[in-house]
Design a binder for these strands. Structure first.
Lengths: 245, 245
DNA sequence: ACACTCAACGTACGCTGTACACAACCGAGG
DNA sequence: CCTCGGTTGTGTACAGCGTACGTTGAGTGT
């Protein structure tokens, strides 16, 4: 097809054609995408052009041969992240330690990859490594004599806790980051921007006290992204599960 | 999404728009946006042009006088959804029923607004109605003699469970919806598309059994979006909290 | 020497949020 | 009555996104 729009400048003015520099592959692409999402602080930094640039590709279209679409790339990223999970081959006999261990492994993974929790629910729960984890959780409950339905019901609670808390942690991180961009303003004003007028509303004395404590740098609870906060929740959940087995 | 140039003042700090409007107003815009997200099955259906069209405005730019940006609109939607929460004015004396009630109210709200859980973590937890809920939860723990830090630690667990499960439910809904678009295909193929080859991998007998049971329409656990699944989790959590008070 | 294959590229398009300038309307002052 | 400044809605335009499609050129087999 002739290019109608561009009036064809003389060839002498055009740059020499670049030599092929790289050889692309799925693993390189996924690795680069994960690095971008890790460093860029979330999924909003991830776009095809950025991945291509990072790989030295001059256009994003080179990636499409390998990952088919951005959704496909995200699927691969999710699976690659889950491949980092520490999943035993079979139950140890201590169901509680087994479940706690898998959950903790998931939690640490979401800390390394803050984008994971926000993306995992945007796609079907597919992929070999998700299946690997699921198989282990099912086998733990099987050893307890529980059927698959029960295992799924409890398993969903563990996922919920890990991913839910991971998203709270990511959100908190983003809040402080956004703060850094305009630190010059009154911290009181900053609190107001987070909590609205309720921050100093006499009708809401406890929230007012909370924000005051935050401003003063006093203890306002565990950081949402801390292991302690995670372990508090997982142990509460396991208590409840134990009571229902 | 956000305006990069301007430091993006939060919507709560902006003056309320004049009330002299004839057709457009914040409430109309937010209502329309929520309806679109409710019906369209998620945040991906929400865009400024769709909202403007629904309101009879010929251009999306009309909205910007009232909501400042799409982020602002989302903030308003999140707060409007939380205004539907059933939050008592003060603790009843039964802390467990109080927390369970608020959580259940949140859960039902996320069922009415499937987009909520996916959007709530994309923004700072601001807004008068979020503050209203937080104040109540803090007051419940205050009556138990617990300090604010403890209350926050436990409160985060409740949020995590509600939102985490809500996202699993939304994801499941989306999976079946995507399915409806091409029902003609072999259901076995469909399972494979969700779970990969693991669905029939002899190395993963339990996942294979699970998918087989799903295909046969047998019991594979509570639907993630069911009240029963939610209550299982909240009761487990409350057990754990009770043991730690 | 040739054709064939296929990895990488460049162009272009539709959809998004939204900046900016303009138009249509308003109540108030001559 | 007619202007007038301010508010409210509109039209145009653009940058950034995912990605469809056709082109290019290096490698390979014959």
């Amino acid at each position: 097809m002739a290019r109608e729009n561009t009036p064809a400048p003389p060839i002498w003015l055009l740059p020499a054609p670049p030599t092929r520099t790289r050889t692309l592959g799925r693993t390189e692409i996924v690795t680069a995408a994960m690095a971008i999402a890790d460093e860029g602080g979330g999924a909003q930094a991830l776009n095809m052009r950025a991945v291509a640039t990072r790989l030295g590709s001059s256009t994003p279209m080179s990636l499409y041969r390998y990952v088919h679409s951005k959704d496909g790339l995200v699927d691969l990223m999710l699976d690659a992240a889950q491949s980092e999970l520490d999943v035993p081959g079979s139950p140890s006999g201590d169901w509680r330690a087994d479940l706690r261990g898998v959950a903790l492994s998931m939690w640490r993974m979401t800390s390394r990859h803050p984008w994971f929790a926000g993306l995992v629910h945007s796609r079907p729960p597919a992929g070999p490594n998700a299946v690997r984890k699921l198989e282990f959780v099912l086998s733990v409950f099987e050893e307890l004599g529980k059927d698959v339905a029960t295992a799924m019901n409890f398993g969903r609670l563990l996922d919920s806790h890990v991913y839910g808390l991971a998203m709270q942690a990511a959100e908190e991180r983003k809040m402080w980051q956004a703060n850094d961009f305009h630190v010059e303003q009154d911290p009181r004003e900053l609190m107001r921007s987070w909590f609205g007028d309720g921050a100093a509303d006499p009708e809401r004395p406890r929230v007012a006290a909370l924000t005051a404590a935050m401003l003063a740098g006093k203890d306002t609870g565990l950081p949402p992204g801390s292991d302690a906060q995670f372990e508090l929740g997982i142990d509460c959940l396991l208590d409840g599960i134990a009571a229902r087995l």
